[in-house]
């Protein structure tokens, strides 16, 4: 093979390899992007403005979803809460494992509108770790949070949904 052809082949192969790698690199890039824009994030925003603003009230709608017909009872104790930006708040979700076996779930938060997540500062959340309940067991699961007082004025209603995903098998697999 001529040297010049070899060079082309080597360069092209490098491009192919790096694009294959780039595809995988997009996963963390995307989650960074999501973190910034607040899609599907269970992580805390570090920098925070906690000056309480009592002149404003934000309506927070709480929504509970069960994925894939999860046999749990899951709902927020209060469906709607009114909160002041900057104030510390606590909301509680009720969960009951209605199945006949012990199950582990992971709760995934989702915000509407999307950018609300950016101003939603969770101090404690049941979504930070997986929750295991025995058959028939119940649990009150709290979320302690603050809403950043820099939240834009056009965000007057925020919907926060938690979706429970069954990860029992996944956990069992990693344990073995």
């Amino acid at each position: 093979m001529q040297t010049r052809i070899k060079i082309v082949v080597i360069i092209c192969s490098i491009v192919v390899m790096s694009m294959f790698g780039f595809c995988f690199a997009l996963v963390p890039l995307y989650s960074t992007f999501c973190k910034i824009t607040g899609i599907n994030t269970a992580l805390r925003v570090n920098e925070f403005e906690s000056q309480m603003d009592q002149t404003r009230t934000i309506r927070l709608e709480l929504i509970a979803n069960n994925n894939a017909n999860l046999p749990w009872i899951f709902y927020p104790l209060k469906a709607t809460v009114l909160v002041h930006p900057g104030a510390l708040n606590k909301i509680i979700f009720f969960a009951k494992n209605n199945s006949k076996k012990s199950m582990t779930i992971q709760a995934i938060p989702s915000f509407a509108p999307l950018n609300a997540a950016y101003y939603f500062h969770k101090i404690q959340c049941f979504c930070f770790e997986q929750q295991t309940l025995k058959p028939g067991e119940t649990k009150y699961m709290p979320v302690i949070f603050r809403i950043d007082s820099r939240i834009p004025y056009d965000l007057s209603t925020i919907s926060l949904a938690y979706t429970l995903f069954d990860v029992t098998q996944k956990v069992a697999r990693t344990a073995t």
Binding site: L26, Y30, S31, C34, N40, D166, K170
Partner: peptide, 14 residues
């Protein structure tokens, strides 16, 4: 898979 912190929409992007 959203259960593990993934995103079905990421699939569509890729």
């Amino acid at each position: 898979n959203a259960a593990g912190g993934g995103d079905p929409v990421l699939y569509q992007h890729l």
